[in-house]
Design a protein around this nucleic acid. Structure first.
Length: 115
DNA sequence: TGGGTGACCATAG
DNA sequence: ACTATGGCCACCC
């Protein structure tokens, strides 16, 4: 009934894409935004992720980092190292909030989800 | 009503 | 190679 409904749809879309990220893989905000539509800037994705913790079912937000492979969103997790621990648990090496071999683990929805 | 901010990215100097 | 700036659009005060 409102514009916010469309926005909510966009938010849900973001969460859905994030849930599609395979274990041991990561992606960045820009790629998600690009996959959903170039008109959506990466900031919107980040803003959507801001509420990811209260979504049902939960969103694997730890698999989303910025384009340089830095865990920019770790401060938004319940505990400071929750994000890093979750990534390491999936076999991703993280040193000083930086994902090692980022390119190797990178997962681009607009490429992997080609249709 | 308007302006500042944000889990960002791309381009230019 | 690094730094600075603009752009993107929704949200909050």
């Amino acid at each position: 009934m409102k514009l916010s409904e469309k926005n909510q749809d966009f938010f849900q879309n973001v969460y859905e894409v994030v849930r599609l990220i395979p274990e041991g893989r990561v992606t960045n905000y820009g790629s998600i935004g690009k996959y959903l539509g170039a008109s959506r800037s990466a900031r919107m994705v980040g803003w959507a992720m801001n509420a990811a913790h209260s979504q049902h079912p939960p969103v694997p937000a730890h698999r989303v980092v910025n384009r340089t492979g830095v865990l920019t969103g770790k401060h938004h997790f319940p505990t400071p190292f929750a994000m890093q621990e979750a990534l390491e648990k999936e076999g991703i090496e993280v040193v000083d909030d930086q994902i090692q071999n980022f390119r190797q683990h990178f997962w681009d929805p607009s490429v992997e989800l080609t249709f």
